[in-house]
Design a protein around this nucleic acid. Sequence first.
DNA 1: CGACTTTGACCCGCGC
DNA 2: GCGCGGGTCAAAGTCG
Length: 324
Amino acid sequence: MDNDKDPFYYSNHHELNHSSFPFFMDNHQSTPQNFQGFFDPSLHGNSMDCNTLSIAFDLSCNSTSEVISSPIDENYKKHISAGDLTMISENQSILNSSLSSSSNEADQVVTEEDSAKSKKDKQPKECEEDGDHEKSKKENKAKKKEKKAREPRFAFLTKSEVDHLEDGYRWRKYGQKAVKNSPYPRSYYRCTTQKCNVKKRVERSFEDPNTVITTYEGQHNHHCPTTLRGNAVTMFSSPSLFGSTSIGPSFPQDFLAQLLPSYINQNLRNHNDQNQNTMLFHNQNLVHNPQLQLQNQQQQQLQFPRDNGLLQDLLPSFQGRQEP
DNA sequence: CGACTTTGACCCGCGC
DNA sequence: GCGCGGGTCAAAGTCG
């Protein structure tokens, strides 16, 4: 086995440390609840927990959390309205927000996002091309009423000088937009594989220009065309790592297994020479966890740095993806 | 010549 | 109703 590139080897031998993964908190300031919010089987029908994750990444869980201070601005307000989000970043460990006060609010956020997201994705291309605008509008209106389950989204914070990181899949850039209040544009990519509608957005954090924010949306329905290192697939699919063997093929293991392997491997491969590191966590379901609610009520002074509106979109509808 | 990128235009939802 | 911003389209350009 090529131990130098095998994340399992790293994790099992505790050779990953903060020098090799600087995005992990310097003082082990993660809260177990934060991880459980994301991996809580009761929420997602899965059996991952902070321990397995922490073991996997040499990450310790304790109960302290650093509070990040930054001015509250409009973007921050958007975060609040967008719901819950947990994110690991290099300096501040976990930025935790669960300022929605009720599940109803959280649900509404998802609904609104679904509505906003629908747009052209739901519009048949033919209608636009044949020029029958009246007919097209009517059909579009009808389509808008149909609720479509939103694809899960995951954002990665990566220390890299390269914007578009090689993740093993082939992507075609289909758009680029200037980001408000940021000198760095946001790029839009689509998986080039036919019938695979996975998208990703890449933008550079304007607060930390060394950090690239990559947001994946959807799941690949095919194998990685360029298998860089296959070990991470095993890693993220492994019951020994992610808990129960009784869990079926469901999110997030499968998703992670499809999404992360080459990406993680890429980071592992590059971390020595590029200081490039990555991780993301997000969770809209924290609000459903009473313990977390209490904790977050106690942390209402917690504040986010601005992210120019990207992270507010990280609200996957996990509920619709749970095991039947 | 095919695959991919660039970039202005367009559509849509949302807030005011 | 209007303007803004996010997301997407698609023609033109670039590259190997």
